[in-house]
Write a protein that binds this DNA or RNA. Structure first.
Length: 460
RNA sequence: GGCCCCAUCGUCUAGCGGCCUAGGACGUCGGGCUUUCAUCCCGAAAAUCACGGGUUCGAUUCCCGUUGGGGUCACCA
């Protein structure tokens, strides 16, 4: 049975890269009628952000990538929150300790520095500082507060493992640090927790981001020490900023929240993400999640780190908006923009077809419909523009049936003999020079309001 | 800096030894449609397949090196 997992840490709003991982894991599990597991990796109490767990659940739900097992739905391998599995890690740490695959290490908290800067040729390596006064048990270690459990690393050995996307990769053990496995507060580090949980939760395929590649030897060692078999492992390329650095807040938008607030559709984002490192066999650009699940295979993922191109995402989002039914788009707009509900139902409904091909994101609704909220940009009109107003007023007054065809007739007539173009009318009526098709918009806007508008600007 | 990974148009990519004088998509530019803006349709420019060696009858495709980019080297994940 295929069982994949998403390891998410509750440190804030989910990163779009987390969704990228979720997509591959989800799709592969679904393709093989397997299960997709969500595990909350909350072993760092310093970085924990209140409420972010809920936001992870909500985000996955928003994308339609809900987990079959996880803290929310539970499952056979409860609990799915690492902070609730401490005894389990202690048990396995004790086993390592006992077998001599791990050791207590004195390491005062003040020395647990931040990331070092490696500019010199000196290759820093953490070592056991002292052998004296080792704690007798994990319990005692935690009480003392200045000791940790570290991984024992063999000397002068090559560790080779197979990354299913890149092939065999070899590290020398001199490159592998004696990683802390249990912190002084008794919490495990990622390295211990992930190996233990993947094993216990019977994860069949590990799909994770490339930044884990360098620490995989540690995990290989743990699998060996426990005498477990490591599942096939896939390291997907990391998403990048336009400057090619790892996708980060500093250079781009990473938060799922941002994409939501911008009015991107989850289906469009997923479609876009799917095309990063993978391609449709028929080179199709637009396809559904179901189609992706059917065609996707982990072995087809490419190792190249792609740049996250917002421009293409916008295009894709536009395509999805355009392909929505009127009802769907109406609901999307209503959900996205509470103001939309202030419009008469009929007005909104009539507006939808006009909006469809003009919206890239849902946030485009507002600028496109300003006039319907009686918001006009303050503009000045020149003499030719002003001179048209009276003619337009009389023209509009004569229109019996207020339809866009008739409205256009009036406009066209003036256009012909005054030698003006459409943008002039556009500017007069809306204050802008571009937007929805004018006659259609005015038809929805109503004759009364149109005349009122003209009256008003005539006084300017 | 050590180690590891990666390398086809600006970007996402197809290509898995001959079909490639390299295909598609976004973007860009030009044109058509037209009632502004879009949508839609057509067309163009855009990659000496990073560079240099091999292997081969034949390399974008295989191997090695160089260069460039990225990741990693925390009691963070």
């Amino acid at each position: 049975m295929v069982r994949t997992r998403l390891a998410a840490s509750p440190t804030g709003y989910p990163h779009i890269g987390t969704i990228y991982q979720a997509l591959f894991n989800y799709a592969f599990a679904k393709k093989h009628k397997g299960r997709f597991i969500l595990r909350i990796e909350d072993t760092d109490r310093n970085r924990f952000v209140e409420g972010s767990e809920e936001v992870i659940f909500d985000s996955l739900k928003w994308f339609g990538l809900t987990a079959d097992e996880g803290p929310l739905s539970g499952g056979e391998y409860n609990p799915y929150r690492q902070s609730e599995r401490l005894e389990i890690y202690h048990k396995y740490a004790a086993e390592l300790l006992e077998k001599g695959y791990a050791f207590y290490s004195y390491f005062p908290k003040k020395d647990a520095g931040q990331k070092k800067i490696y500019t010199s040729e000196k290759n820093q390596k953490s070592t056991d500082l002292t052998d004296q006064d080792r704690p007798a048990s994990l319990k005692e270690m935690i009480e003392r507060g200045d000791w940790v459990v570290r991984l024992k690393v063999p000397k002068n050995e090559k560790i080779t493992f197979k990354d299913e996307i890149r092939g065999e990769i070899t590290f020398d053990t001199s490159e592998v640090t004696e990683q802390v496995l249990i912190k002084s507060d008794g919490f495990p580090t990622y390295h211990l927790a992930v190996v233990v949980d993947d094993q216990l939760m019977k994860i069949s395929h590990i799909v994770r981001a490339e930044e884990w590649l360098s620490s995989t030897p540690k995990h290989v060692l743990l699998y060996r020490y426990f005498n477990w078999e490591m599942p096939p492992i896939y390291h997907t390329a990391t998403l990048r900023n336009p400057d090619k650095s790892k996708l980060s807040k500093r250079h781009g938008h990473t938060s799922v929240l941002w994409f939501k607030e911008q009015g991107f559709l989850p289906v469009a984002i997923l479609n876009f993400l799917a095309l990063l490192g993978w391609s449709h066999p028929e080179e199709k650009e637009i396809f559904s999640l179901d189609e992706f699940i059917k065609l996707f295979d982990l072995k087809d993922i490419r190792p190249v780190a792609p740049i996250f191109d917002l421009v293409k995402l916008r295009w894709m989002n536009q395509q999805y908006i355009q392909n929505s039914t009127d009802e769907e788009l109406e609901k999307l707009i209503l959900d996205f923009n509470p103001n939309a509900a202030k419009l008469p139902e009929e007005t909104l409904r009539n507006l939808i077809p006009l909006l469809k091909s003009r919206m890239e994101t849902l946030s485009d609704f507002e600028p496109l419909t300003e006039m319907f909220f009686d918001k006009f940009e303050v503009v000045e009109f020149d003499d030719t523009e002003k001179s048209i107003i009276p003619e337009l007023v009389t023209g509009f007054r004569t229109v019996k049936e207020w339809s866009h065809e008739n409205i256009f007739k009036v406009i066209k007539e003036i256009m012909l003999h005054q030698k003006v173009r459409m943008p002039v009318f556009y500017k007069l009526m809306t204050g802008r020079t571009r937007g929805l098709p004018l006659p259609e918009a005015l038809e929805i806007y109503s004759k009364e309001k149109s005349l009122k508008r003209l009256e008003k600007i005539n006084k300017l």
